[in-house]
Nucleic acid binder design. Structure first.
Lengths: 283, 283
DNA sequence: TTGTACGCGTTATCAT
DNA sequence: ATGATAACGCGTACAA
């Protein structure tokens, strides 16, 4: 049996209500009793029961983080960002990596636990009746955090400067980015190439730069020419560097912090910007 | 105001207690009232309040997942595994990526929320008074899931067969693995080499296999020879393949499932194996 | 088979 | 400035 408010009250010789007031920093409590109560609280190592508090206050101190996209790399940094903020406001994040789950299932869980708000990475279902931060897509009627794809595409195009753009590595560009890059015309045709599975032949020559390029490769797929621009993502920075390519970086931690802050502000009924763009960087 | 048990009771013309019993599958309820009650429950979309239930039952339906190691790649798969199991037993995982947090802080949160158990990736503090599954290290008096480093080291050594072992890529081998590999002696000295930052010169030649190896490189660091064995981790499988190296794979999803199952069994007071080894695979 | 009444640990509304 | 008491929503021993 853990120590309750009643225990503290009895030990301090006051009423439960007084303990509650001390705990919540009620100003109209004499500093004498306040000190006495705090002393007992610490001595008995009393910790308020969040369930009882929640039941009484009609809020749980729980928020939920739903991550749809299994491929979301940098999840640890993202969650760390969320933790960083939520810890300061005494809210615990319940996590769901949800490729598997029906929206209705999740909803019933959230309703049951009186979750106060949701951070949803991916496409939240329509008509969510919780405070919601959507990460990744712009959602009508919800605050959203969206990668600034347009900006990224333009950075890439500018950097490419006519060279063929080649994506390699385990993380591939998503559909949105590919669409944004569709307009790009480098020299020759096939000015954008997303490798799947294996690295293009010839890519090693970037490193051994004294070698000649395959004469027959041209702009054909399957061959990497020295003039091509190589692009990788987050985790493969070492390879990008080693191969003289570029690495696209998405600030997952910062986005986690932002999402958490936005949600906290919503819970406090403050105004928040509806659409929040996050810039990539290219290194 | 959400619909409560009392609402259901009134609507169905029975007592709250009866509704509660129906909900909990109490066998001594007439099938007639049971059906009636279920009908109302569904019609009103009644969802039991987890806070009230928890307060009454003295358990919250919450467990916690603490991930210490910021570098833990495959976190999404791991969490997905945990979700998969926990969803079947109606437990919600609270997540903490905890490099930042004091153990005492975490403890107070867990006590407050009446967390039923913890899955801790990394090194849990001593004297945790929660049911605990430790992932990554063997902890006295706690059930643990540990990577089978010994086995991995031996697989690597066997595969290397005298070749120099070279780790490249953004994910590096940890201390434990390096220690296990210390005994390995390949041809020449420096038979193990962990690249940091940039890829070794010469690595590209693996792909362009018609090139000659740098004559002056020998076993010196900074140069990759054709005879070397290249090793990468999880996310960099494409590169490993492309470069004729190997990729070490740790089954994060399965470990998540295992951790969750073990914890559930502990909560049900079943016997569980104390030390659970998880094998790597090399592809 | 079902209803009554109390307890779970807080917060909030009255009093005093 | 503080105490008494009624919610909050559910489970359960006891009674019927």
């Amino acid at each position: 049996m853990s120590v309750t408010m009643a225990d503290v009250a009895k030990e301090a010789g006051v009423d439960k209500a007084t303990v509650s007031r001390v705990l919540r920093g009620d100003p109209r409590i004499s500093s004498k009793t306040r000190e006495k109560v705090w002393e007992v609280i610490k001595r008995l190592e009393y910790k308020p029961n969040a369930l009882a508090r929640g039941l009484s206050e009609r809020k749980s101190g729980l928020i939920s983080v739903v991550v749809e996209e299994q491929q979301f790399s940098g999840l640890n940094r993202f969650l760390k960002g969320i933790n960083r903020i939520m810890a300061t406001v005494n809210k615990e994040p319940i996590i769901y990596v949800a490729d598997d789950f029906e929206a209705s299932f999740l909803r019933s869980r959230f309703v049951a636990h009186k979750v106060e708000g949701i951070i949803w990475v991916g496409s939240p279902p329509p008509n969510v009746d919780f405070p919601l931060i959507a990460v990744g897509e712009t959602i009508d009627k919800h605050v959203s955090i969206v990668p600034y794809w347009e900006d990224l595409a333009q950075m890439i195009i500018k950097l490419a400067d006519g060279r063929r753009i080649v994506f390699a590595g385990d993380t591939k560009p998503n559909r949105t980015l590919k669409v944004k890059l569709e307009g790009y015309k480098g020299k020759g045709k096939n000015s954008l190439w997303v490798c799947d599975g294996t690295l293009p032949k010839g890519i090693g020559r970037l490193i051994n730069s004294n070698c000649e390029i395959d004469q027959d490769s041209g702009f054909k797929e399957g061959y990497f020419r020295k003039g091509d621009m190589l692009l990788l993502f987050n985790e493969e920075r070492d390879f990008a560097k080693a191969m003289g390519g570029y690495c696209i970086h998405f600030p997952c931690f910062e986005v986690g912090v932002l999402a958490a802050k936005l949600l906290v502000n919503i819970l406090r009924h403050r105004d928040v910007p509806f659409k929040n763009l996050v810039r990539f960087s290219i290194e």
